[in-house]
Design a protein around this nucleic acid. Sequence first.
DNA 1: TGAAAAGCCTGAAGTGGCTTCAGGGTCAAG
DNA 2: CTTGACCCTGAAGCCACTTCAGGCTTTTCA
Lengths: 138, 138
Amino acid sequence: MQIGELARSTGVKIETIRYYEREQLLPVPQRTDGNYRLYSPRHVEQLRFIRYCRSLDMSLEEVRILIGVLDTPSGSCLTVNALLDEKIAEVDARVNELHKLQDQLRQLRGLCQQPDEVKTCGILMELNRSARIDKAQI
Amino acid sequence: MQIGELARSTGVKIETIRYYEREQLLPVPQRTDGNYRLYSPRHVEQLRFIRYCRSLDMSLEEVRILIGVLDTPSGSCLTVNALLDEKIAEVDARVNELHKLQDQLRQLRGLCQQPDEVKTCGILMELNRSARIDKAQI
DNA sequence: TGAAAAGCCTGAAGTGGCTTCAGGGTCAAG
DNA sequence: CTTGACCCTGAAGCCACTTCAGGCTTTTCA
Ligand SMILES: [Zn+2]
Ligand SMILES: [Zn+2]
Ligand SMILES: [Zn+2]
Ligand SMILES: [Zn+2]
């Protein structure tokens, strides 16, 4: 299986596949005489695993760790549990932030129902006012 | 006011302030004889404005647009309304994604209550199984 | 047979929003 | 007069890719 077929069958771009190889997330594939990469079903599986982990918001570093764990089947899975707990906490925190942000944005948007001149726009006045008294840092 | 004082009084790092200047988000400040930057209250105000917008998850490009709008007080504020509407939609979409992610992560985490060997860990088995049937792309 | 088209290769640079680093210069206090 | 706090510049690093430049290989089809 060449890289194009792997890309089509997983929905991952060719460049991304080569990038994962450079980053050592995918094993080095065989090559044809013409220097084309040749992949096995094992590669398909691992690439799908990577993308599924990425869809769970894991970083490539975390995926690397998980792949390492999978490669030592007799080890303990404490690492995996810790990684997931941390990830859950991160996502919860981010959701809370975004909820606050939703409130702020909607409130701000409500300040201009009838679009008018910039200098009297409730949104821009509020942006300037809030900035002046803002204490929250990113 | 030198850059250090501006940094302290706004909570923005010195390097970030210089970066904003390079990116033309802050007006070029005066300089002392020794080539130190000298800031005015106008700079403090604009820097706070930038940071407040950033805390609302706006990109620097969007902040640039808002600054441009503010600089033409007789124009209309339609741009601002559109920008906010788009931002609200983005945040709503992201929150929905993260809610789904929370569910997935918690469910996954529930698959390993008693940490055991990697090869029998419910989490890792599920990660592999899901990857095989996964259709969702990022 | 030969040329175009489709597919693949590499290495480097670009993206955003900064942060960090290397290697300096300036200025006030002791 | 030296120490230390403060400031300067330009370049590189971070993540997870994407894009680009320039060239090689294989297939197709006239
Ligand atoms: Zn919610
Ligand atoms: Zn308005
Ligand atoms: Zn839910
Ligand atoms: Zn387990």
